[in-house]
Nucleic acid binder design. Structure first.
Lengths: 213, 213
DNA sequence: AGAAGTAGATACCGAGTAGTATGTTGATGG
DNA sequence: CCATCAACATACTACTCGGTATCTACTTCT
């Protein structure tokens, strides 16, 4: 078969597209969407705006692509623990640990998606942008629904207090996502140190649901 | 005594300044700092840029003023429960409830401060702005330290698990602040409904600290 | 070698906007 | 009733930045 000249249906994002996304995520993380110029994004990879516009049709499309990738990374990180066998408590704990370590390891993407899609994008926007926005929002909700589901499992099994899962998922995700706001990368931080941090946070969110007695 | 002609030493922010701040907080909430033009802020009060520049020297100064007011509102909201007599558990619960209700009732300010001072303001900034930024950051830390303090009280009294208070305060505040991101004002929401929501969230964060046993 | 496509670079335009300089109006005090 | 000042409004400037139109170097296929 040799090399594939065709694009796979899964379309694994060409290297250059990822390089641009990485640069964009760093720039958006530091300055936010509105304050980031495409010139600065392209500077980040020693290139010019032309390179970006070759791969993305607009600034918003680039922004959405960063969000999409962040959501997909999140889904990939928490999925395994969600699907694992075991108690709801352990599954949730695993999800929270994986989520937190993901934030540490991919801070730019995760901080950008934690900032949220700024709302002015919702206002004056064309159809294709509106569709992409709905799409990204769906990915976000899909990830949230994994948490809701495991919370409900824990309530059903009696491991957790009887809570409104949809409601409690909000502060739970807040506790996790907040990490992207305060965490500052430490040079040479060991994997064990990351794990310890993630465990602390996971203990906190799981504890918020467990029965007392 | 009649009406006071003098400004109090505490300088309770003249009405017009608050009106401008309210408008600015709404605009910044919707569009973020960079994407909000001062023309739009002044439109919000049926005025023009001139009015804003009469009271504030720059867009950043206005932004800082919104932050400052948000921090002060927060401090005023959580202070009483913090200083109350009683168990650490109850004090923390009271702080979390008050904090959440504050978010609901003053969403624009609280969402703006939850978004954080965008970092590009830190970069190319003059001395006075740098000073204001440090000032607002100090207010934020002061509020956080109230939470840290009550967590430590609970650990000392044995009510809470032995945790690193400074670390655990992060997800705790994340759980609370996140409310400003997902909460959408409900017309005619009763005080009881607000309280119920706030209780759920407070239960969650307190539960994250209590001993299971 | 030539043709055609790929992967950008460069130059430019028009819209939006922070900040400023100056004009205007109503109230106040003498 | 005039001068002054507070509280803005208006007009303008300088600059940034998204988007586009055009140009160029390199590669691949024939």
């Amino acid at each position: 078969m040799g090399r594939q000249g065709r694009i796979e249906t899964a379309e694994p994002l060409a290297d250059r597209r990822i390089e641009i996304l990485d640069a964009a995520s760093r720039a958006f993380m530091r300055q936010g969407f509105a304050a980031t110029s495409l010139d600065r994004v392209s500077d980040e990879i020693g290139s010019t705006k032309g390179a970006i516009y070759y791969y993305y049709r607009s600034k918003s499309e680039l922004f959405f692509a960063v969000h999409r990738r962040g959501m997909e990374l999140t889904r990939a990180a928490i999925g395994p623990s969600f699907e694992a066998q075991g108690s709801a408590r352990d599954r949730l704990h695993g999800m929270a640990v994986a989520h937190t370590i993901l934030i540490i390891d991919h801070l730019p993407y995760l901080r950008v998606i934690a900032q949220g899609l700024e709302m002015h994008l919702l206002e004056r926007t064309n159809d294709s942008e509106r569709a992409e926005l709905a799409d990204v929002a769906a990915l976000r909700e899909a990830n949230e629904s994994l948490y809701i589901s495991v919370i409900n499992d824990g309530v059903a099994s009696g491991e957790f207090r009887p809570v409104d899962a949809k409601l409690v998922a909000k502060p739970l995700l807040g506790a996790l996502n907040w990490t992207s706001r305060w965490y500052q990368p430490r040079r040479g931080e060991t994997q064990a140190a990351k794990k310890q941090l993630a465990d602390s946070i996971a203990d906190f969110v799981v504890g918020g649901l467990e029965k007392k007695r």
